[in-house]
Simulated scan of single mutants.
Amino acid sequence: MHDVNFHHQHELDQYGFLGCCKDCRRSLEIIKPHIMAFAERIKQYDDEALRAMSPDDLYRLFLLLDDLAHMDAGEHLAALILDEPDIRGVLPVIRDYYNTFFSIHEVHLAERLFAPGNPWETFKSFPLYPRYEALMKNQMEANGIKAGTRMAFIGCGPVPSSLIILNHLAGIRSVGLDISENAVDLSQRVIRCFGLEDQIEIVQGDETLLANLDWDVVLVAAMADPKARIFQNLRRILQEKGRRDSLVVFRTYTGMRAILHVPVSPAETEGFRIVNTFLPMGRVNNTIVVAKLDD
């Protein structure tokens, strides 16, 4: 499958695709077949087939999509591509695969961390670790979080990578929330592997639990849904607690990276105002947005 990925990238390169160029229509014609081909390919794999793949094969398949998401296309060209009728029609298939990949990938990672050995060495050996670390460094820059801050993370998943790395980089204490009982069980075991039980708490439930938890800053995972309900509840909790200046940080997808997941819309964050936006660099997927309650 590695050869397929190389060939895929080589085909894009041979056209001299340079991102947002003067002939956006021509660029769309070059890129569209690759997106449609990936959509057709991924339709061959149902959830069971994806879970049966080895971690290496699963990751190589992911890289085919990752190359498309990280093309150097400007905002105009990216919007043109993702709004093309045929491409728009296959986006749900592609985005569903992206969500499934990460749910499987995190379970694989958790299982590796449970094995004997140094969990940090295992964690850092995973191909996506550099992205996690870069994302959290961006996160720290985005809202200036420092030691002593307690972060609440909505949608922490089976491996709360963000919370583990934040604690490693800056001693940030945190509480992770997830509605999945299985994800919470795995996440709690992962925390014990790292010996961070006194630094990171994992609880089962949705964002409404924040009304009774201790936290300073809220982080909303890119895949935590439904966003409209989450932000509605956050708005209510912040108002009831009289915490109008508390930061709510959320992750979204912009440019070509929006091929991976539906971006957070202004309608979903109604009642909040955007304080700052940090665009991703390199192979990081998420744009980081800092918000506060609207005045």
Rank of each mutant, 00 (worst) to 15 (best):
His7Leu: 13
His8Lys: 12
His10Thr: 12
Glu11Gly: 14
Leu12Ala: 11
Gln14Glu: 14
Gly16Pro: 12
Gly16Thr: 14
Leu18Gly: 14
Gly19Leu: 14
Gly19Thr: 15
Arg25Gln: 13
Ser27Gly: 11
Ile31Met: 06
His34Cys: 08
His34Val: 11
Ile35Trp: 01
Glu40Cys: 10
Glu40Asp: 15
Tyr45Cys: 06
Asp46Ser: 10
Ala52Gln: 08
Leu58Lys: 10
Leu58Thr: 13
Leu58Asp: 10
Arg60Thr: 09
Leu61Glu: 15
Phe62Tyr: 15
Leu64Tyr: 03
Asp66Val: 00
His70Ala: 08
His70Cys: 11
Ala79Tyr: 10
Ile81Gln: 03
Ile87Pro: 00
Gly89Glu: 13
Val90Pro: 04
Val93Cys: 13
Val93Phe: 14
Arg95Met: 08
Tyr98Ser: 15
Tyr98Thr: 14
Phe102Trp: 09
Ile104Ala: 02
Ile104Ser: 03
Ile104Met: 05
Glu106Leu: 05
Leu113Gly: 03
Leu113Arg: 00
Trp120Ala: 04
Thr122Leu: 14
Leu128Tyr: 11
Arg131His: 10
Met136Asp: 12
Lys137Phe: 00
Glu141Ile: 09
Ala142Ile: 07
Thr149His: 07
Ser161Glu: 02
His168Ile: 00
Leu169Lys: 01
Ala170Ser: 15
Ile172Leu: 03
Ser174Asn: 01
Ile179Leu: 11
Ser180Asp: 11
Glu181Pro: 00
Glu181Gly: 09
Asn182Asp: 10
Arg189Phe: 03
Arg189Leu: 03
Gln204Gly: 15
Thr208Gly: 09
Asn212Ala: 14
Asn212Thr: 13
Trp215Ala: 07
Asp216Gly: 08
Asp216Val: 07
Asp216Leu: 08
Leu219Ile: 05
Ala221Trp: 06
Met223Tyr: 09
Ala224Met: 05
Pro226Ser: 03
Pro226Thr: 06
Ile230Trp: 03
Asn233Cys: 13
Arg235Ser: 12
Lys241Asp: 09
Ser246Met: 12
Leu247Glu: 15
Thr252Lys: 00
Thr254Ile: 09
Gly255Cys: 01
Ile259Gln: 06
Ile259Val: 15
His261Phe: 09
Val264Asn: 02
Pro266Lys: 05
Ala267Trp: 00
Glu268Asp: 09
Asn276Leu: 08
Phe278Lys: 12
Met281Leu: 05
Gly282Asp: 08
Val289Gly: 11
Ala291Cys: 11
Ala291Ser: 15
Leu293Gln: 00
Leu293Asn: 03
Asp294Gln: 11
